[in-house]
Design a protein around this nucleic acid. Structure first.
Lengths: 124, 124
DNA sequence: CCTTGAGCCTGTATCAACTACAGACCCTAG
DNA sequence: CTAGGGTCTGTAGTTGATACAGGCTCAAGG
C-alpha cells in the first residue's frame, strides 16, 4: 500500500496506531493485507492532510464519511473553519514577507560589519 | 525578565537550556539575575522567531552578532534563504486556499448527505 | 511568630505528525 | 546456502515550546 499510494510505510502504521486507519487483517505470518477500501481511505487521508487539515480534522471528516447520516452542512462547517485558518496563516506570512524583504533590500551585501537585518532585529 | 519582555517564563529557561540564552549569574539562593544585555538578547530572539526564523537560524544570527567580524554578506545569505522559505510557504497555502474555497463554494450547505468537499477528497 | 500566597527552582512529561532506528523474523533468487 | 530485501514490534528522536510536580524562598498581614 505504501508503494501504491506513495505514503511512507511508517506513516501508514502510525495512522493505524492512532486509529485513523483500521487494523487490517493479517496473513498467517502476521503480515498486513490491504484491499481497495483501505487504499481509498488512505488516499482520502493523504489528500486531506495535503490540504492542511490536522489529523483530528481528518478524523472528524472520516467520521462523517463513515456514517451515512452525515450532512453537507456538517462538512461545510469543518471546511470553512479550516479555510479561515489557512487565510489567517497566509496573512501572517505575508506580513513576515513584507518585513523581511524590506529589510533585506537595505542590505548592502558587502564585507562591512554593518547590516540592516541585524539592526532591525536589534532595534527596540 | 519574563515580565519585561512578555516572554513566557518557561520559554526563557528553555532557551537557556538549549544554549540560545547564556546561563545567567545566580544570587546566593540560586535565583537567576538578568541585566540589560540579557533583555536585549532575548528581544532579538523574540523578534527573529516572530519573523519565522527557526531557533537554529536564530543561533546562526546570534553567532554573527557575537563575533565582531561578521559581515553584512553573511547575514544577507541567512535572511534571503529564509525569505525564499517564507515565499514557498505562502505559495503552498495559496494553492490550498484556492482548492478549498473552490470546493466549499460548491457546498449546498443543506441537510443532504451529498457534499462537494467529501466528493473532492474521495476522488482519485 | 505564624500563615498565606506568590514567585522561583529543577526535572520530567506532553503536544503534532511523523521519522528513524534496533532487533527479529520471513521469503525469494542465485 | 547465503545474501538481499521485505516485514514485524516497539521505542526514541524531531521542533518549539508548554504544563505540571514537588520543593524552596520571600514579603505582607494578623
Amino acid at each position: 500500500m505504501a508503494r501504491a499510494t506513495g505514503c511512507n510505510l511508517e506513516t501508514i502504521r502510525y495512522y493505524e496506531k492512532i486509529g485513523i486507519m483500521p487494523d487490517p487483517p493479517r496473513n498467517t505470518k502476521g503480515y498486513r493485507s490491504y484491499d481497495d477500501a483501505h487504499v481509498r481511505r488512505l488516499k482520502f487521508v493523504m489528500r486531506s492532510r495535503d490540504l492542511g487539515f490536522t489529523l483530528e480534522e481528518v478524523r472528524g471528516l472520516l467520521g462523517l464519511v463513515d456514517e451515512q447520516s452525515r450532512t453537507c452542512a456538517e462538512v461545510q462547517v469543518i471546511a470553512e473553519d479550516h479555510l479561515t485558518d489557512v487565510r489567517a496563516k497566509i496573512a501572517d506570512l505575508k506580513r513576515i514577507e513584507r518585513v523581511l524583504s524590506d529589510t533585506v533590500a537595505r542590505c548592502t551585501g558587502d564585507a562591512a560589519p554593518e547590516c540592516a537585518v541585524i539592526d532591525a532585529l536589534l532595534e527596540a
